[in-house]
Structures are given as structure tokens and as C-alpha cells.
Computed example of a mutant assay.
Amino acid sequence: MRIPSWISQHGAAVRAVLVFTVITGLLYPAVILGIAQLPGLSDKAGGSIVEANGQPVGSSLIGQSFLDAQGNPVKKYFQSRPSATYEFEYNTDGTAASNLGPESIEGNEALLTTVCARSKAVGELEGVDGARPYCTKGGVGAVLRVFYSEGLKGKVQRAVSVNELCPATPFLAAHEGVTVECAQPGGDYAGGVLVPVRGDAAESPAVPADAVTASGSGLDPHISVAYAKLQAPRVARERGLPLDRVLKLVGAHTTARFLGFMGEPAVSVLELNLALDRE
């Protein structure tokens, strides 16, 4: 008796599913698991866990915050760079970038205002000038909505500091002869031209870029050497250690460029803080 073609076709499909289930669902994972247990690979496969006094305290691949219960920086520790992961900083369930770009400059949640606020806070913590170009002294984006007599050109009729809500005093008293207003909560200023104001801050701010911006994954465990050196005097002062000793520890926990030419030298924050605790 001849088997109908549709049964043969379905039988072949079932056999293919079973074969590939065994290969990709059992054999391949087993082989990869076996390779992961080889010397030199097992630590990385296990999450690159860092231990202190026999207890796991973190991973060398994932950053973490060094904050107190109120969310303030613990001054005796080096601080990590900001994280864009949702709900909690360095939440591995929400690894992602903020998706905000250089044109996000208007509003309290804009990238520019976030960067300005962080720079101001870091400057206050480290005792340096936290000023940055296109930031107000109050730590928001220095951005105006300018209304012209002819739409996109002509005489300025009105100027609004859109990142400073009333009753705040605008960072700029006047723009092209017109008094600058603070923004009314809920006000619609879309009809004006968006004008960022550079201000008189230095081209190279005292606060490094990685101190105010998150990494692409939101989980970067490293900071730049410049940011580490900025924090070193505070950490040395809080711990009663010589600054030279703290800087030597920074150097000891700095990794070189990958393959000698890719990327920039970086400092492992967790491992540096653990070394300080051992001191």
C-alpha cells in the first residue's frame, strides 16, 4: 500500500525537527558547556565574579554604584560612571542606552540637561568647576526658544529659557535686546526657534565626559583615567591616605588599550575600591 505523499512530507518534517532538536538543543549546548569549563575559560563563563574575604561582591564585567541608603555617593569610594538602565542603576535586566542623542536639548529629561546636572553635582563633590558649554550655572541646558518677526528670521520678538521653569531667573538676562523669560509650566513654545547658548565655560571641562554620560550598555565597570584622577584627592582625604598612594593604586588597576591601539586606558572601579579597602 502506497503512503500518501502528504504523510511522507509530514514524517520527514517531524524527523528533521527531532534531529535538529537533538543537535542544537542538546549536543551543541553540551559541547559549549564543556568548552566553558576548560582552564582559563571557566571564570569568564561563570560571570567573572570578584570576591572579597571569600564572598562574591560583584563582577569584573558589570559596573555597580557606590551610594549610601539615600542615594548619595559614599565619599571614601571611587564612583562609577552613570548608568542608563531603568529603575535602578546597573540593573542587568534593563541593559540599554538612553537612546537620547545630541539633539535632545529641550526639557527636564533632555540629554543636555541630564549632562549639565551631573556635571554640576560631580563638580560640587570633587571641589572643581562643574561648568560645561551649553549649560547654565544651575545645571540645566542653556537653551532658548526665540520667536522672530518673520518665522525663522527677522527681528527677535520674544525669547524663552525653555529649560528654566518659572519662577526661576533665566540664565541670560536678554537676547538680542529682548528680555529673556522663564518658561511657564506646560507652556507651548514650539513656534520658536531652538537656540542653544554656548556660554563662557572652558572648551575642556574639568569634569570628564564619562562622569556625566552613560555607556552604550549602561553596565560599563570602568572609568577613564582622567575621572579616576579627579576623584583621587577626595578618596585620599576621606581615607587619610597619601594622595601618591591612591594614585599608585589607580595606576595598578588601569588596563591598557586593547591590543595596544584600540580604545583608551580604563580603570576598574570595583577592583580599585576593593584594593583601597585592603589598605
Rank of each mutant, 00 (worst) to 15 (best):
E124W: 01
Y86K: 07
S104H: 11
L100E: 11
T95R: 10
P73I: 10
G71P: 07
A69Y: 11
N99W: 10
G101V: 14
A97L: 01
A69I: 15
P82K: 03
A110N: 00
A110I: 00
A69G: 14
S98G: 13
L100Y: 07
E109Y: 10
E87D: 09
V122I: 15
P82W: 04
R81D: 01
A117M: 10
K75D: 08
V74G: 08
G123Y: 03
A84Q: 02
C116V: 09
G71L: 13
S80C: 10
L125W: 09
R118L: 06
E109D: 13
T114G: 09
E124I: 04
T85F: 04
G94Q: 12
K75S: 10
E106L: 07
E89F: 01
A84W: 06
G94A: 13
G101Q: 14
S119F: 00
D93V: 04
K76S: 09
E124A: 13
V115H: 01
S83K: 05
G123R: 05
N108Y: 00
L111G: 00
Y86N: 05
G71A: 13
S119T: 00
E124T: 03
K75W: 01
G94H: 07
E87K: 09
E87M: 06
V74T: 10
L111E: 03
G107M: 07
V74C: 09
S104I: 05
I105E: 04
R81W: 04
N91V: 10
Y86A: 10
Y86L: 10
V122Y: 03
Q79R: 09
G107I: 02
T95Q: 12
Q70T: 14
K75Q: 11
S98F: 05
N99E: 12
P102Y: 15
S80G: 13
P82R: 04
Y77L: 06
S119I: 00
D68S: 14
N108G: 00
S83G: 08
G107C: 07
N72R: 14
V115Q: 08
Q70L: 14
E103T: 15
E124C: 03
K120M: 05
A117D: 10
D93H: 11
G101A: 14
T95Y: 05
V115E: 08
C116Y: 03
P102R: 15
G94D: 06
F88T: 14
P82Y: 02
P102I: 15
A69F: 12
E106D: 07
V122K: 02
Y90Q: 05
G123P: 02
I105K: 10
K120A: 06
K120T: 03
K120S: 03
T85M: 08
K120Q: 08
K75M: 04
A117C: 07
D68W: 14
V74I: 15
T92D: 13
I105A: 09
A97W: 00
D68C: 14
A69D: 15
F88Q: 12
K76A: 09
T92I: 15
K75F: 02
D93R: 08
V74M: 11
R81F: 00
P73Y: 11
L112Y: 01
A84Y: 01
